[in-house]
Each structure stands twice: as structure tokens, then as C-alpha cells.
Amino acid sequence: MWVKRVLYVVALIVSGALGFVAAKGQVAVLDTLDVVQRDYDTSLSKVDLSGIRVNSDDNIVNVLLVGNDYRKENGYAAAGLTDTMLIATLDMKHGTLKLTTLMRDMLVEIPDHGSNKLNSANTFGGIELLYKTIAQNFNIQLDGYVEVSFDAFKTIVNDVGGVEIELTESEAAYLNATNYIRPAKYRNVKAGKHTLNGAQALGYCRIRKYAKGIQPVTPTGQIDDYGRTWRQRNAITSIFNKVKKMPMSKWLDIAKDVLKKNVKTDLTNKQIINYIKDVVMMGTTTIHQLQIPVNPYFSGGNVPGVGSCLSIQKEYQADAINQFIFKYNGKNGEFEYTPSSDVSGYSDSSATVSPSPAQ
């Protein structure tokens, strides 16, 4: 999922920069974190979860990571659909790092709004309603949130001076003929190797289709989502190739710029610093991953009034995510979901996910 990759790029550059300033002392870290947008009025700790059963552990921290495609420019506005929702888990009980992806098209019960896609909750009632929806459907207590906008990627690209990308004729034609590049004044790309600015690079990474009758679609000939994910990897590689050549002090400038414009959280500086220290003390670079819904406890189809979505068996999905976050220790291979005995309609089917090494 594209915004997941945006979150990944932002996290890597910011964490690297914070590691650099940490060597200079806590004052420098605080100076960097002070530019982050704070919204304590929407702190997750203030969300009323009365009547909802949620699980928690003092030694396990769960932070909601949200990728928000909110854009408002030149008469165009998108109303903040949270197309990427992840739960980052700092499991000090088992010494593991975990990342749970919540697929946006899951059909869930949204308090006071009935059944709808999970990514609709933020549109209906902001981050507070999204949290309440996650709590009600998956029985998880969250300790805070971090929201990253699409513009974070554009900011990084512009701060490094653009990215070197080779466009095919099909890609160039498609970008110039669609609204993937915003504002429209930048829809003037041509086939060949170019330095794309942030708006152009973001449009490039979003391409899934192709200009009719023009081949190849990518330099490698890949199409559809295979082509899109290849473009994303290509752009991210280009970014890091440029970042690696920059002095660490420049990383700090980029981190401040990204944090200031594109990141919002209800976490305090003290909490963030303590979480960074806890990760360092763990000494692990492996992130174990789970995607919800797990197989085979969901089905795809069209629901009247909602559209194409994933209908889930909620008990199984809640059971899976709770097993993964609170019980999985990461020491005996992949996480394999087997339904607990207290889940109704017990099945012998299982779902497997693989750990992903952090880069």
C-alpha cells in the first residue's frame, strides 16, 4: 500500500536524524521534536471507551500510525480518508517490535454510523472515532497516534533536490493526461531520465494503469500493481541514494521540515524520547508483521451503500490481532494464527505472516 511506504520513508529519515541529534544530547532532540504539530484535544487517552472491552499491558505500547491523503489545492479537496492504518507495537515484555496493518476496506461497525469501511471512520468523526472503531471491533487499547500526510513524501523529495527517475513514454503520457500530478503546472514531464520534483514524484508513484496503446508501461515491462510497487521502490531507492550522500546535519534539517509540516501526534516529547530509549535497549532490528484481516476469515464483495469491501468475521480478526500483539514473542519462527478455543465457530485453518527485517 502506497501510504505505508510514505510512512516508512518518513520514519527512516526521522529516526536516523533523531539518532544523530541524540548523540548531541537531549536538548537537541527536544528542539527537533518541538516542531511537531500537537493536538492534545484529540488525545486518545480522552476517548470514551465505556462499554467497550479492550486489552492492554503495561509492558506493551501500541501506537496508531495513520497515513492521511488530505489534499486541498487549486480547487481540489480530499476529505482525509485514512487509507493506511497501522498499529506499531513496542513489546518490552517479549523484546520484540511489531507492525499490524489494518486494511482500509474492511467492513466494520462504526459507533453511531453503522456498518462501513474502516477508513470512513476518520471522515465521520476524526481520529477519536477511528480509535473507538478499532477498539470496538478489535478490542485493542491504543496509547497514542501519529498522523502523516501525503505531503510528507513531496517535502522529502523537494528537500533532497528532487529524484532521478527514467520515465517511459507511457508513464509520461499518463502523468500529463491525468490529475496524478498536482498542481497542473507540473504536468509537463517527458520520456527519458529526469529529476522529478515532489509533486511529480508522488504522481509517478501512484501510477497503476497506463496510457492506451503506448508500451512499455515501465522500463521493466511491469503493469498494474506490480508496476506501481516497482515505481515506489525505484523512487524510494533514488531518495535514499541522495540522502546517503548528504551530511547528517542535513538529515536533521529534512527531519525538522517533514515533522513541522506533515506530522501530527498526541504523544508528548517525554513519551517519544522514552520510546526511542526502549527501542535502543531492546537491541533488535527485526519488525514482525501481521495483516488484518487474516485468511480465511473474510470475503470480498459488494455491499449496498458501501461498495466493494471485505466482510470480516470479527471474532477471529480480534482474536488474531490480540494473540499477535500480546502473546507472540517472535522467537519461534513466523506468527501462525490458530483460533483460540473461546472463539465461536472454531476452525482448524491458520494464517501465516513472515517477519520483515528493518532496513
Results as ranks from 00 to 15, higher is better:
residue 2 W to P: 10
residue 4 K to L: 14
residue 5 R to D: 14
residue 10 V to K: 03
residue 12 L to W: 13
residue 12 L to A: 15
residue 12 L to Y: 13
residue 13 I to V: 07
residue 14 V to L: 01
residue 16 G to C: 09
residue 17 A to Y: 00
residue 19 G to D: 11
residue 20 F to R: 12
residue 23 A to R: 15
residue 25 G to S: 05
residue 26 Q to A: 14
residue 27 V to H: 13
residue 33 L to I: 06
residue 33 L to H: 01
residue 34 D to H: 15
residue 34 D to N: 14
residue 35 V to C: 00
residue 35 V to W: 00
residue 39 D to T: 04
residue 41 D to E: 13
residue 41 D to S: 12
residue 46 K to G: 06
residue 53 R to A: 07
residue 53 R to E: 13
residue 54 V to T: 08
residue 56 S to C: 06
residue 56 S to A: 10
residue 61 V to P: 06
residue 62 N to I: 08
residue 62 N to Q: 09
residue 63 V to I: 11
residue 66 V to C: 05
residue 74 N to F: 13
residue 80 G to M: 05
residue 82 T to H: 04
residue 83 D to I: 12
residue 84 T to Q: 01
residue 85 M to E: 04
residue 85 M to Y: 09
residue 85 M to F: 01
residue 86 L to F: 10
residue 88 A to C: 12
residue 92 M to H: 09
residue 93 K to G: 05
residue 93 K to P: 00
residue 101 T to K: 04
residue 104 R to A: 09
residue 106 M to K: 13
residue 110 I to N: 11
residue 114 G to C: 14
residue 117 K to F: 08
residue 119 N to A: 01
residue 121 A to D: 10
residue 123 T to S: 13
residue 123 T to Q: 12
residue 124 F to A: 11
residue 126 G to A: 07
residue 128 E to H: 14
residue 137 N to Q: 09
residue 141 Q to L: 15
residue 141 Q to H: 14
residue 147 E to V: 07
residue 150 F to K: 11
residue 152 A to S: 12
residue 155 T to A: 07
residue 156 I to F: 01
residue 158 N to Q: 04
residue 161 G to Y: 06
residue 161 G to A: 00
residue 164 E to V: 15
residue 165 I to V: 10
residue 166 E to T: 15
residue 168 T to C: 11
residue 170 S to K: 05
residue 171 E to F: 03
residue 171 E to C: 06
residue 172 A to F: 09
residue 172 A to L: 06
residue 173 A to H: 08
residue 176 N to H: 08
residue 178 T to A: 03
residue 181 I to S: 00
residue 182 R to W: 07
residue 186 Y to P: 03
residue 190 K to L: 14
residue 195 T to F: 09
residue 195 T to K: 09
residue 196 L to G: 03
residue 197 N to T: 00
residue 203 G to E: 04
residue 205 C to F: 02
residue 208 R to M: 01
residue 209 K to E: 09
residue 210 Y to K: 11
residue 213 G to L: 11
residue 214 I to H: 00
residue 221 G to V: 01
residue 225 D to I: 09
residue 226 Y to N: 13
residue 231 R to W: 09
residue 232 Q to S: 14
residue 235 A to C: 01
residue 236 I to H: 02
residue 239 I to Y: 03
residue 239 I to Q: 00
residue 240 F to I: 08
residue 246 M to A: 05
residue 249 S to P: 07
residue 249 S to C: 13
residue 260 K to I: 03
residue 261 K to E: 13
residue 261 K to D: 07
residue 262 N to W: 04
residue 263 V to I: 05
residue 265 T to H: 02
residue 270 K to H: 13
residue 271 Q to S: 13
residue 276 I to H: 08
residue 286 T to R: 07
residue 289 Q to R: 11
residue 292 I to Q: 02
residue 292 I to R: 05
residue 293 P to Q: 08
residue 297 Y to N: 01
residue 297 Y to K: 04
residue 307 G to F: 03
residue 308 S to F: 08
residue 309 C to E: 02
residue 311 S to D: 03
residue 313 Q to P: 03
residue 316 Y to R: 07
residue 320 A to L: 05
residue 324 F to C: 02
residue 326 F to S: 02
residue 329 N to C: 03
residue 345 G to R: 09
residue 345 G to L: 14
residue 346 Y to P: 09
residue 349 S to Y: 02
residue 352 T to S: 04
residue 352 T to F: 04
residue 359 Q to L: 15
